[in-house]
Write a protein that binds this DNA or RNA. Structure first.
Lengths: 230, 230
DNA sequence: GGAGACAGGATTGTCAACAATCTAGCTTTT
DNA sequence: AAAAGCTAGATTGTTGACAATCCTGTCTCC
């Protein structure tokens, strides 16, 4: 269960950033979790200066929120933020699917099908965190195939934030990312039907959003002070 | 010509970040320009630690590039990066226009028309940097009207990068952002013709891209080392 | 004259101590 | 007993000094 292998320490900044990203996507770091500097220093055997830098990067990606003098916390997206994230995903992933449709080949298609199967299997076994991880990877992999690193970077951020949103507003029973929909999307891609694939992706994202109970429950670690003062 | 008013020093991080963003968008900081820590400390009367933090944020937005042990430089987007930026803009701004079409009202429409006029006037007067600034603001304002802060943030980044791309690959004579196209876009928005507005935006962005001479000229401060070693 | 080695100065990267702020528990007061 | 005030400990923020790296000009040697 060691979070890090005994590789070249000190770890590079981006490695630490990716580890935190991964932990968020796998629901290991829930929304609102405090990220104390000391804890991170020990976890990654890093200096405080490095951790501080990493936290700034993560805040720039909206995965953590910095409260001045109070520390860093895993973000708790509000209901309106959640809407914005899904709208952004539809905009970006529609374009991603259109590009991927022309770029995709047999090998990558098979890889995505394998991902879908593995996700369904994990879900069946009740391994929720693994299922979530694979489902997120499906979308990111598609962006990589589309070959636009700008959009891929944005999507990585949005997938992580989606994970937080599901953690906050998702009912535990509802499927969050149906592998069946991934499969029909792949069918459209295999058939070269770009437009249909794009529409399916948009529907898919709508379904995920609708499966959530996105009411404006402040719920999580609301900071009383910030609301009252100023 | 003071870069900063005598406001509460030390300036907040995000203020400094925005100032650098603005300087890049107005072509005051050209691609490849070195951002030495000392120079920035003096310019903003900030500590080195703060400047360092700001540079990390700017790097996260791909507006500056950090070369370990060698310093921070204004980014010089490659030809393929340029293509990716424009593709991302088309994806995002299509969605922005569709949303803005339903959200826009008379007041904001008039504001945008005023922006377009001011831009045309600046262009006529040969005030290139002002024209560029207004043109960028047109697109960002539209995103604000659409009301999605996630997409707005992405677009701010992409507009700044577009500015760098134009600086690198734009012929000096070619118009970069035709105000006439902005006007016809506004007409479509006023008429409530969402689809046409979205198509016009996509065309508009295609025209900007095509007006550039995006050949893969390394041109700027290529770091020989990184190419040769490893 | 040119290639390589070297040294001084400047710039970036790191660290540890210090200052400022917040949190939590305890005491005091009403 | 509840509320307000206070103190000790912990956490975050900042600063300045030091270490490491890089750049530039000069010198030597072939």
């Amino acid at each position: 269960m060691a979070l890090l292998a005994d590789l070249p320490r000190p770890l590079a900044d981006n490695v630490i950033v990716e580890r935190v990203f991964a932990a968020v996507m796998e629901h290991k770091l829930p929304p609102g979790a405090k990220l104390a500097e000391n804890a991170l220093c020990e976890a990654f055997e890093a200096s405080r200066a490095q951790i501080r830098r990493v936290l700034v990067v993560l805040a720039g990606r909206s995965v953590v929120t910095l409260h001045p003098n109070r520390g860093a916390y895993v973000s708790s997206p509000s209901a309106s933020e959640a809407r914005e994230v899904f709208e952004a995903r539809r905009a970006i992933e529609r374009s991603v699917v259109l590009s991927a449709a022309t770029a995709i080949d047999e090998r990558t298609l098979a890889e995505l099908r394998a991902n879908s199967r593995a996700g369904a299997a994990a879900e069946a076994r009740g391994e929720r965190s693994e299922s979530i991880r694979l489902s997120g990877q499906f979308h990111i992999r598609l962006a990589e195939i589309a070959g636009n690193s700008v959009l891929t970077r944005y999507l990585e951020e949005l997938v992580a934030r989606t994970s937080l949103i599901i953690g906050l507003y998702g009912s535990t029973r509802a499927r969050t990312c149906s592998e069946a929909e991934h499969d029909t999307l792949l069918d459209a891609l295999a058939a070269g039907d770009k437009q249909r694939a794009a529409d399916l992706m948009e529907e898919h994202l709508h379904h995920i959003e609708e499966a959530l109970d996105v009411r404006d429950t402040p719920a999580e670690p609301v900071d009383i002070r910030q609301i009252l003062q100023a």
